[in-house]
Amino acid sequence: MKNVMSNKFVITLYTLPALLLILVLIYIPITLSGYYGLMDWDGIGEMKFIGLENYVTLVQDKVFWTSTWHSFQLAIFSAVSLLLYLGISLVLASKIKGSDLLRKIYLIPMLLSSVAIAQLWMKIFDPNNGMANRLLEIFGVENTPLWLADPEIALYSIFIPVIWQYAGFYILIYYAALKNVPDEVIEAAKIDGANALQIAFRIKLPLISGIFKVTIMLAVVGSLKYFDLIYVMTGGGPNGASEVMASYMYKEAFKLNNFGYGSALGFGLLVICLVMTWLTSKLTKSNDDVQF
């Protein structure tokens, strides 16, 4: 039996195609990204080796740090909004009628492309004919905001569709986790006289803390590399007000043809994402085994 199932030729045949793909299209490019970062290069002409100059520029680049700060704001915001989703999931999972339908309705925005979401919300935020400002007027707000056109609030305006997009996804995860809490445990608590709030906070939440930690990591790392929606809605504008790490990298490379510096930025993005993945998993790691 060992012979057939340890046939080297078959193993190679089965794994090599996929392995080659990820090596050539994922691992080699990230290595090259660090290497291109050492070059002065417009993407077409000759590369010129300039050592660490791009990385020195990067460290001193105010726009990079502003963009990074914007990405981190999104990460913090996403992580905090998880509490809202958790609250909703707790209610949903408490044997409520129609929870299945509601859960699916919540998920619908997650299925749409970022382009569709971005274009739709650009219309919602339209200062004159959009839904957002008319809604504010109904509630008596007089100086309605310009949303995406206002540098002060453009970034935060984009956070709204981000929440809208991902809410259903996290609710889905929490709901599934809460449904896995054994009924016997809850019944036992009820018999001991625990009320609904005590059951939620003392029993259900501790039991799904492992999943909660995983979602924190998903939300943080996902936010740090967030790109599509911002690229379509504002392109990082107005005047860099909503620029994030990935959009800044993209602009440097494909708009300004600074492939060398763009690669350095891409490498910086990679390092920050990996460090944050490691850090969040360290910070949230406890005795439960968080699988990821």
Partner: peptide, 17 residues
Amino acid sequence: VAYMIPLHSTIIPLFNM
């Protein structure tokens, strides 16, 4: 591990390749 690599970091080298 490849799952954790942000695709945006690969896009410039991929374009070149």
